[in-house]
Every structure is written in structure tokens, then in C-alpha cells.
Design a protein around this nucleic acid. Structure first.
Lengths: 400, 400
DNA sequence: ATGTAGGCGCTACGCCGACAA
DNA sequence: TTGTCGGCGTAGCGCCTACAT
């Protein structure tokens, strides 16, 4: 049953403006997604933004799109605002960021403490389950994994027969969903029992239009509230933007928007879609500086990189650096975006990208630093007198 | 029941590429919408395109969007291609157009016959009904207006008791829908009977997610096929594009796309959304020339203008010209887009726009032509030796 | 421990008739 | 002419048990 709560204000014209629950947003976005802190300095990559648009429109961002000669491949900006949103139709999470390109003077200012550690913690008491055919059929309810139920659902009174309670969970739009949670015997004889959501489950499935392969996500937060999120399987995208703007115009729009802001030092707005975008294209400046200027990589070097598993946890994959070069030298010269060509140890995984960015990987050999053969010079080289990156661990820069 | 037909190819990555049924598209688009013919010369208004984006995103296209100084307010283009599409999710119709800005030389060439009359005829055997609460409830079927059923449905065998048949209709995506069509007695005693769609109707309603206020549209074409379209009520838009590109970037993208094409005389692609866009922003060059250079208008002049009724037919509203001026002189100087301020006779209708374009209206007094006080000079004035517009009726230029 | 299927009560879908606007 | 509602038969939803993996 879909109910509006008392304090719920309806979405206004520019999408969902209300402040979303941050834990739920991050849980839906996944464990690897972190948003830079408001006020900090970040690096914005038009090239990466372009990749997101390409992924959204299911088209490649290619050749015939003219480049903006005045637009540099990476824009150092101040992050004035970040707001978390969720699509009203699909519950897809996304973030809106307001960026302002910085003057060279501002770029060189030393880091504030807040700019170094951005710990976007994943909630602890949560579980994520990929729906089975039985879960989504109209024939029955939802089978709750036992450990999950015991960890995130309020405790049942097991003395009752059968133990049961009504769960009330709120989704990203703060809508309320009610479920009957029971703990039922399996065999008439014995002990083995199971947790089920029965009444209320099917209306949720049909309202959210879930089908087998999609995932649901329950969180039990510190305020003893139950939160409920949805993650859809990567189904062939609905190619939705077709009817508004051609994908070429979208790419141009993004470039023009950034170029104009860079020229006038004014603010511009972008949307970051963590589950659509192949990689984060707005990263903390400190992370960028550490990876590009204070880490030495070379061909043949081994590294680790984090990936998300099906169960919404992380695991490390290992690989070897096979090359270092600009991805698109014609258009984005000296961009560090995906400048590292890699090979992966597990060949079965054809999914993993053949190119990654320096700040995405964790080199295994931490050699002492010396001048790199890779041409790292930017138009504006980083001044030598800088905060102590050397003593920092990679994790301190928000890599987890 | 939703069935794929044998010859139906699935949509590819860039939306629906298959050739849609033209009659059905036009019926869904409405009686006032006409698409210029392929190969003809047209005038493209970035300003109008911007209005469409603003309507799609529910935001005003306003001040802080920088203008492209190099982009003229109207672009004379060759229309290389027009394809009709329908949104996979909503069945919303839209057209994709490929435009190429023309050199001054090409702009001045005399008109071809095909450029003058673009008769986009509405289908004759069709009906459109706005759904009632009863039509969309799960309690019953669809009540077919008697005249409509007799006009567009295949004849029933009235000797049977009750007269019934199975109707098969195809929608914009060429999906097949089956309905049981019966002609049933009202009172046990007497003659008065009614047409109903029963079995099959409710699955259609739920699949298309129709609700009271939306409209359905049946066409019986020359090949004895039954076609079926949907027109949704103007519900508060789903503000869908939020999660991809900011509306500012979209506006910039459209302008940059057109500006780049104009500079390089290359092709660009736009989408025209007849039911979202307040006005057509790609119109035949001939229509433009006739309205701007061969029609004299002045303040106080009376005029008529066509509007669509609820039942998908047209009616004329009358009004008076109250002013003539550029809508946005700062950004779009000497654009003729909505340059005419008007007052409407029927004051109850607050919906009608206070500004219209010259080619949308039909002045009542056809005075002999003389130099107009309104500054009509373009950068490239139209050469005097031109085809005979004077003898043409307004209707000949595609105004229906 | 958990996905899936058979059983079967009962809700609500959907077809009929009736009435009113 | 056509929107809506009371009636009721029945398909399928949804809760149970049961079994397989």
C-alpha cells in the first residue's frame, strides 16, 4: 500500500528537491560510489561526463562531435553544492552538482582538512537481495534470507505462534510501504523455519515494476527506521532521451556548458548517475593530485582495483599495466582520463574495462618516487610546496 | 493481449527506427500538426526549439543562458530527412528531422512545386474518445460511441444474437491488440442498443497505463486495417530529463548544435514533439515567406487562428492584434518568432498564448500589399522576383 | 537455507443487466 | 445516447504446505 506520510512535500518542477535520506541513497548507489564533500575542490572531466551521456543514450560519443578548443580536459572546480535525487519513475539514484571553475590562484591554495578525507560510509545494517522468479511472481511473497532478516528487521516475538509483525519501510521518495513479516515452519514436524514477507509485498512489486533480476535493499538505521531501496538490473536501457534532444546536441550541450563556465568563472550544473556512468567524472582534487603527481606507475606494474559484487559488497581484482597513453589525443590531449591500459588476471571477466584512470587503481609496489617517464606536465604544473601526501594512505583519499 | 507480429523488428539502440504508420502518427499528433516534406526548404527557429525544451523540462529558458552571437534567429535549411517515432514507454509521438543550413545562393532559388503544397491529410475514418472513469475502471469495458463504431469498425452481422466480432488493432509500435466488440441490448424489452469493447480492453488499459482523461483513437484505413493510438492528457510532466543533463546544458546544446551546423553548413538533427511543443519551430520556407513578406498586418487588425478541440477536430478562434515587436530583442533581434501580440475574443480561455507568429494566424482583411511599418529587413533581404504567392490561398501553404 | 510447485480459499475482475442524465 | 452502478460467476491472486536443490 502506497501512503504519503504527513511531513512529505511533493516534488516540485525540477524533479525531487527534498533532501533524500543519505544512507539510502548511498546504499542504492553502491559501495564504491562516493560524493565529494560540499565546498571542497574537485576535478571535473568533460570526457567522463560525455561517457555518461553516451551510456544514457546508448550511443557512442564519437568523431563528428566538434571539440571546444577552449575547453581543457580537466577543470579544477569548487563544488558548491551536491544534492541527492531519485528518478520519480524508476527510483534510479543520481546526484546534482554545482561546480565553479577556479582561478589559477585558487587552485594553488593548500588543502583544507575537509578536502582530504571524504568518508562516505555505507550503512552497516542493511541487506541487498536479487529477486528470484518466485519473489516477483504473483503466486507468493518474498523469501527473506535468514541472516538478513535477523540483522536488519526488528526482532520478532518468537513465543507467538506464528511469530509475525508488520514492517513499515520508506523508500527514496519517503513513501511508506507495509509488509507482513512472518517466521514460518517448513515441515510440520520440525524446527527449520523461514522468514517471509507476505501481505503487501505484491503491491510493492507491481508498483515499482520489479521483475526477477532486480534487487531490493533494506536498511535498519540508527533511528530505528526501516528504509527500502531498489536497484534495477542492467536491462537494455529505455533510450529515453531520444524524444527531447539528439545525443549529439547533448554532448555539445555538456561541452558548451563547461566551456562557458570556464571562460566566465561562473557556476554550472551537472548530473552524476552512479549506476549509468562507467566511472566517476568529478573526483576530489586531492585524490587526483596524489594519483597523478605523487604516484609512479610504469608498464608491467601490478595493481589492484575495487569492483562491486552482485551482493553489493566489494572485491578486489588484480591486473597489470600494459600501456600508458592518452585515450583521445586529438580531442583531449594530456587528459589523464583512462590513460592507463590494463590487462586483468581473470580472463573470464570480459566486462572489465581495458582502460582505467590512475586514481581508480592501487599500485601494488609502492616504490620511492622519482621522475616518471610519463609526461605529466599540465599547463599549470603543481607547485612543489604542497601538503604531505606522502605519508597518507590511499584509503585516506576516499578510495573506499 | 500484447503480441508481436511476424514482420515486426524490435527497436534498435537509437529508439524506434522502423517506419511508423504515417496516418496513425498524424492522427495522434493532431489535426493541426503538419510535417514539411522531405527535400524542401524550411525555416528553423532556435528560439522555438528552446521553448520545446523548456516545456519538456518544465523550466523556463531564461536569462542566464548565454546566447550564441553567431547564431541567427532563423536558419533557412534544407530538410534532408524526417522520420516519425513514438516513445516506447508512453507512445508519445515525435519526429526526427535532419536539417542542413543553406548558403545564401541556395536560399534564393525559386520554389519547387513540392515545396508549396504539403498536404498532410488527417485520416478520414477515425474517431477519438476521451476515456471516462467507467472506461478505465477495472469494473467494465469500453463504451464505444455509436456513430464512431458504425463509421470505423467493420460491420457486424446484426442477425446474430448478440452481434459480436473480434477486432484486431495495431498500435504505433505495430503491436497487436485484440478486443471483443459486441452490440448489446439496453433494456430487455426494446431496441436501444450500444457498442462495447469487452474482453481484451482491460489489458490494453493497464499495459498503456491509461486513466480517465486520456484519449484513445481508432483508425480504419484504406487497407482495411484497424489502427489504435493513444493521447495522454496533459498531466504534470514527469520532468524526466533531470537525471541526464541540466536544462541549461540542454538549451546550450541545442544552440551550439545549430550554430555549429550553420558555421560549417553541415547537417544537424533535432526532435520535434508536437504535443509538447507550444508551436512548430520548423516551418516550410514558402509559408514563412508568404506570412512575413507578402502579408500586411497592423495593430488593431482582426484575425482567425486554428485550435484543436477536445474531440481532435479544429475550430477557429478570433482575436485582435494588439502589438508587434520582438519577443526577446536582446537575444533574438529581428526574429519573427511570436512577434505578434494578440488579444482573444473569448476571455474565458486563459490558455491561449498572448503572442503568436505571423504564419500561425489568418488576417481577416486581405488588403492590397504596401510597405509595412514593421521592420521586416533580414540580413539577407528576400529578392523581389519571386513565385506568385499573391494568388495562393492560405490553405495552399499547409495551414490545413 | 532457500527456490519452486501444488493445494485451495477468497478477493476482485469483468460480463451482464438496469437506471439516470 | 452513454456514464455509472448492483448483481454474480469465475479467473487468478496469495497464503499455506510440501519437496527439491
Amino acid at each position: 500500500m502506497k501512503l504519503s506520510s504527513a511531513g512529505f512535500s511533493p516534488p516540485n518542477q525540477e524533479g525531487e528537491k527534498r533532501v533524500l535520506n543519505s544512507e539510502l541513497w548511498h546504499a542504492c548507489a553502491g559501495p564504491l560510489v562516493s560524493l565529494p564533500t560540499i565546498g571542497s575542490r574537485v576535478v571535473y572531466f568533460p570526457q567522463g561526463h560525455s561517457e555518461q551521456v553516451a551510456a544514457s543514450t546508448n550511443r557512442e560519443a564519437d568523431a563528428h562531435i566538434p571539440n571546444c578548443p577552449s575547453l581543457s580536459p580537466q577543470l579544477i572546480c569548487q563544488l558548491h553544492n551536491v544534492t541527492m535525487h531519485a528518478d520519480v519513475e524508476t527510483d534510479e539514484v543520481y546526484a546534482q552538482m554545482t561546480l565553479q571553475p577556479l582561478s589559477q590562484q585558487e587552485q594553488k591554495e593548500p588543502f583544507l582538512p575537509s578536502e582530504l578525507g571524504s568518508l562516505s560510509k555505507q550503512p552497516t545494517n542493511y541487506f541487498c537481495k536479487t529477486l528470484t522468479a518466485s519473489d516477483t511472481s504473483t503466486h507468493g511473497g518474498f523469501s527473506v534470507p535468514r541472516r538478513a532478516a535477523e540483522k536488519v528487521f526488528p526482532p520478532l516475538d518468537y513465543s507467538q505462534q506464528p511469530p509475525a509483525q508488520e514492517l513499515i519501510a520508506r523508500d527514496l521518495h519517503n513513501n511508506e510501504w507495509k509488509f507482513r513479516h512472518i517466521f514460518r515452519v517448513l515441515f510440520l514436524t520440525g524446527q527449520p523455519k523461514r522468514h517471509l514477507l507476505t501481505t503487501g509485498w505484491s503491491v510493492f512489486v507491481s508498483a515499482k515494476r520489479l521483475s526477477a533480476g532486480d534487487s531490493v535493499l533494506f536498511i535498519w538505521n540508527e533511528k530505528n527506521q526501516l528504509l527500502l531501496g531498489v536497484r534495477r538490473a542492467n536491462r537494455p536501457q529505455t533510450v529515453m532521451p531520444s524524444s527531447v534532444l539528439s545525443s549529439d546536441s547533448m554532448h555539445l550541450g555538456l561541452l558548451a556548458s563547461a566551456a562557458h563556465a570556464a571562460l566566465t568563472n561562473s557556476r554550472f550544473t551537472i548530473f552524476y548517475n552512479p549506476r549509468t556512468s562507467p566511472s566517476e567524472f568529478v573526483i576530489p582534487l586531492a585524490k587526483y593530485v596524489k594519483a597523478v603527481y605523487h604516484t609512479r606507475v610504469s608498464i608491467g606494474m601490478r595493481f589492484r582495483m575495487l569492483f562491486e559484487t552482485e551482493e553489493s559488497s566489494v572485491r578486489r581484482y588484480m591486473g597489470t599495466i600494459t600501456g600508458i597513453s592518452d585515450m583521445d589525443p586529438a580531442r583531449w590531449l594530456n587528459s589523464h582520463w583512462r590513460s592507463v591500459k590494463v590487462g586483468w588476471d581473470e580472463s573470464t571477466t570480459g566486462e572489465r574495462q581495458p582502460r582505467v584512470s590512475l586514481w581508480e587503481i592501487e599500485p601494488l609496489s609502492t616504490l620511492p618516487m622519482y621522475p616518471s617517464p610519463f609526461p605529466l606536465r599540465l599547463k599549470r604544473p603543481w607547485p612543489p610546496g604542497l601538503p604531505p601526501f606522502n605519508g597518507m594512505k590511499y584509503d585516506d583519499l576516499g578510495a573506499v
